[in-house]
Design a protein around this nucleic acid. Structure first.
Lengths: 172, 172
DNA sequence: TATTGTTATACTCTATAACTATA
DNA sequence: TATAGTTATAGAGTATAACAATA
């Protein structure tokens, strides 16, 4: 259920909202709408600190894994290594991360967080926590646990279906 | 819980997965991961029919609202009117939608679904339903109702916080 | 040969601002 | 003046393929 009307979009005036048909009943749509609401909220809040949610996530992983190589970071973030390059370029240019050569293996350019990066991260963490607590605060403790459980069940269902599809492919 | 290891990314070999730090506990991250899993599944399945999830959603709305004008369609889809133009261009080029002038108001180009568009939509609907049923099938009936309720609570929580933030801005 | 990081390139999704033709 | 649609443009975000340096 959304704020008003039946469209899900702010229907300012008397604009006749359109019929959304079968879209309304879909679980996927509910997940999308909810995820986007949460994501945009974090995005907005993080703007104050000057980073994006993706940059935040990368900073967290780099801080926890000092000197990690880019290939691993990409994997950890679920991105292609080529996608990480401009992200790190940007954060390096802004002075939050640093590329440093490795003595043993001169192909590697290990990634380190800078002092500035740590400061930004320290400023960002409470912001992210605050947004996440807003989500948590909308639920009781048991509801929160329930939600996590249900989302996990959904993911497992999808993984299993993908796995059996692969099985069929292999058998075919 | 994910397939193996602790990274959430397929860790093929013996690659040491990185520490994800505080990212792991975040509700937002769980929502994102779950939403993306569902979205990618629908996206993959819809590929067989030759349309994207966004195109599907637009086709549904157009079919349910024959001859709607682009401004309203954009609103219904939560997009800027300029964003809709290339989407409709593409679907018109592929023969799924049609722009037709309106007699009363010659600025308007009403959007209609074509026979071909209806056929594609008819082929797409069971595909989308199948994916959505996969999600539903991972849950019991009461879990499904519970999940919808919890997601709604989250959205309301975010809306309320946005509303009070606006209130504060106005007061400031 | 294989791996690390990079570049070149392209494609999707999205928006803002300015424009055209109507109204 | 206001609205409907379009164009021009820009910016994320993402990927694939090819490449140089190094292992």
């Amino acid at each position: 259920m959304l704020t008003s009307g039946d469209s899900g979009i702010a229907d300012d005036d008397e604009a006749p909202s359109l019929d959304q048909g079968m879209l309304l009943g879909l679980m996927g749509r509910e997940l999308r709408v909810t995820y986007l609401a949460v994501f945009r909220r974090v995005e907005d809040q993080l703007e104050k600190v000057g980073i994006t949610p993706q940059q935040f996530a990368l900073l967290v992983v780099v801080e926890r894994n000092p000197g990690a190589r880019q290939t691993l970071l990409a994997k950890a973030r679920g991105l292609d290594k080529s996608t990480l390059v401009p992200m790190i370029d940007r954060l390096e240019r802004d002075g939050l991360l640093e590329r440093r050569p490795l003595a043993n293996d001169r192909r590697v350019r290990a990634i380190w967080i800078t002092e500035r990066g740590k400061q930004i991260l320290d400023a960002a963490i409470p912001v992210v926590r605050e947004s996440d607590d807003l989500v948590r605060g909308s639920l009781t403790e048991s509801e929160r646990a329930q939600l996590l459980k249900l989302m996990e069940k959904i993911r497992i269902g999808i993984e299993d279906s993908a796995a059996s599809a692969r099985g069929n492919d292999a058998a075919a």
